[in-house]
Design a protein around this nucleic acid. Structure first.
Length: 582
RNA sequence: CGGGCUGUAGCGCAGCCUGGCUAGCGCGCUUGCUUGGGGUGCAAGAGGUCGUGGGUUCAAAUCCCGCCAGCCCGACCA
């Protein structure tokens, strides 16, 4: 492709409303333009990267036994009503009414396709002989994000590869899950991403039923816990700590419990300020409704409760913070003054709670707190649980090691679904003995745009993006330095045509621009191999080849330049391929 | 949806506080010359509902109110 014949509007300056690197660079490199918050046009360069990433995903999914299909984005709302996800999605589900003749249809734009594919399978799969089956599609998804952000990292319309597998047994599901997990590792490695598979929140199935694939990045929206020593990695929502239940007896030298007046001071910060103490000396007492029953949850003042862990510890379906009325009923005080001493409901505590000696808590009385509160003497616990988010420095749950916290961009998610959708939508099979069984399902998603944005976010330098060869919009950029010079252009066109004939993606910068402009733009858009054809080199009988990530150019004799370029490219391809796991 | 910030040419900004000539600057764009290996130099141009609606005023980019849009923090996120 000749630069003059495509559309690559590069920008020298950083648009003021772009804050994260991927957004700035993709705008400046002329890859994307914004239509509105959370909606972007992919320009030719951006689209080429997207297509290349998509091709990698498709190849690996096919290799892993997936079968490609394409489902409608437009879906009838009743499918979501049948699985209860109309309410679960809430405002995120884009849905609307349309008139068709004298009827009114209630439709949704698919945020994901469990319903549609399960409906399909329910109609056409009836025997164990037809399973297992894995189908996938690469298609635009729609979600009314409450807050689209970070440029193209979080948009309300995005390209997703979603795969769904159907099984007669958990063993079969586990087998496909492993295949998909490995395919995902290969996909992200082939795309040149530094990826980190982490344990993720997995809902009712529990265990190792879900993994997310994260790209470590400062601007990631997710927080990931990992441990260098033990290799443990998990989403913060999910991450366990290595904490255990401590002795539940009163510590020696405990201070006397004293009631102090704290008028209108209910929050942890405010109490600390008033009493001149640190949050870790405090115990916060959160009143939750667990399946409708009030429960007091004790957490150290500087920690955060984790509602997923709480739900599991209590063995209930739902937990939510109680309303002020319930809080008043169990504590006898308004919000902000709850404490474990004398509270009138079940009390459950995090492992760290009993370790707080002479704790400060609410007094279950308006405008009063207690100091010198101690386990055993002032409140009792039978045991403690892991109820909070992990923090940096916590012990690893998998042996000797310390947890660290990093941010990450979620690019993929593999998930064991179980029978939730098959039961709701009647997808079942007859087994060998003609017993009707619900089909067991798995689902596997990749955000294709996030592969692209994640690369721009993590693979760049001060001059621009640095694409890996595997997904670069073009492998080679040809820069003739004098487009008016006949000899230069003759050589350039020869190289251009020969590379194209060899199947190489070449971009020919045929603009009548000075060398500096072409070099700056080539660096900005991040083409891996830059070939310079200029008067200086031609005098010596050479053209120059420079990798985007290397400081210096190599000189290639004119006569053998094209084979030399092909050799460079194939060596690089092999190098990138060597980093892909089996 | 709560909190904060910002809307002036394609992009980046100044002007606003303290209202007053024809609304400026840099980049980009057009034309001509020039230069020709890391964003050349010179000259001449084109390009604006100052986000939008109302109000105050002799007079509004500037002051006041509403609305809209974008960005950031938070809540939410199969």
């Amino acid at each position: 492709m000749r630069w003059s014949q495509t559309f690559i509007p590069t920008m020298k300056e950083i648009p003021s409303d772009a804050e994260v690197p991927s957004h700035q660079l993709m705008l400046r490199a002329g890859m994307i333009r914004q239509l509105m918050a959370g909606a972007y046009t992919y320009l030719p360069l951006g689209l080429r990267v997207l297509h290349k990433a998509e091709a990698v995903v498709r190849e690996e999914m096919d290799a892993a036994g997936g079968i490609e299909i394409l489902m409608p984005a437009l879906q009838p709302i009743d499918l979501f009503e049948r699985t209860g996800r109309k309410d679960a999605f809430g405002n995120v589900l884009i849905n609307f009414h349309v008139r068709r003749g004298d009827r009114t249809l209630h439709l949704a734009l698919g945020p994901t396709h469990e319903e549609v594919i399960t409906d399909l399978v329910s109609k056409h799969i009836s025997s164990y002989r037809q399973l297992p089956l894995t189908m996938y599609q690469i298609q635009t998804k729609f979600r009314n994000e409450e807050r689209p952000r970070f440029g193209v990292l979080r948009t309300s319309e995005f390209l997703m590869k979603d795969a769904y597998s159907f099984h007669t047994s958990v063993e079969s599901l586990n087998d496909t899950y492993q295949k998909m997990y490995r395919a995902y590792c290969r996909i992200f490695a082939r795309c040149g991403l530094d990826y980190l598979p982490v344990e993720a929140e997995s809902g009712p199935i529990g265990g190792d039923a879900s993994h997310e694939f994260m790209i470590p990045a400062d601007n990631g929206e997710d927080q990931v816990v990992f441990c260098k020593q033990t290799g443990y990695a998990a989403n913060l929502e999910r991450a366990e700590t290595g904490r255990k239940t401590p002795p539940l007896t009163t510590p020696s030298g405990a201070a006397a419990m004293v009631k102090v007046s704290t008028p209108d001071v209910g929050s942890i910060d405010a109490v600390c300020k008033l009493l001149k103490c640190q949050p870790q000396q405090m115990l916060k007492t959160l009143i939750y409704q667990a399946d409708g029953q009030p429960v007091a949850v004790l957490i150290r003042g500087d920690h955060e409760a984790n509602e997923n862990k709480l739900r599991r510890a209590l063995g209930v379906k739902s937990v939510e913070l109680a309303d002020p009325g319930t809080i008043f009923k169990v504590t006898g005080a308004p919000v902000g003054f709850a404490g474990p001493v004398g509270i009138k409901c079940r009390v459950i505590a995090d492992h760290d709670v009993p370790l707080v000696k002479d704790a400060i808590t609410g007094a279950n009385e308006a405008d009063q707190h207690l100091t010198g509160v101690n386990i055993g003497r002032d409140y009792q616990l039978d045991t403690t649980y892991d109820l909070r988010n992990a923090v940096a420095g916590d012990p690893s749950p998998r042996g000797e090691g310390t947890l660290e916290l990093v941010r990450g961009i979620e690019v993929g998610h593999v998930f064991k679904l179980g029978t939730k959708y098959s039961v709701a939508l009647g997808a079942a099979f007859d087994d060998e003995k003609e017993f009707r069984q619900p089909i067991i399902m798995g689902c596997y998603g990749i955000g294709v745009n996030r592969i692209v944005a994640g690369l721009a976010e993590t693979k760049h330098d001060a001059n621009g993006i640095i694409w890996p060869l595997a997904v670069a919009p073009y492998s080679v950029i040809l820069c003739p330095l004098a487009v008016a010079d006949e000899e230069t252009m003759k050589m350039t066109n020869l190289v251009y045509e020969q590379l194209k004939a060899a199947g190489v993606d070449v971009l020919l910068d045929d603009r009548d621009q000075r060398a500096g402009v072409k070099f700056k733009d080539a660096d900005l858009i991040g083409i891996p191999l830059r070939i310079v054809i200029g008067g200086k080199g031609l005098k010596e009988g050479v053209i120059e080849a420079k990798w985007r990530w290397e400081p210096d150019a190599k000189k290639l004799p004119v006569a053998s330049a094209v084979p030399a370029i092909l050799e460079l490219l194939s060596a690089r391809r092999a190098e990138e391929a060597s980093r892909v796991p089996e």
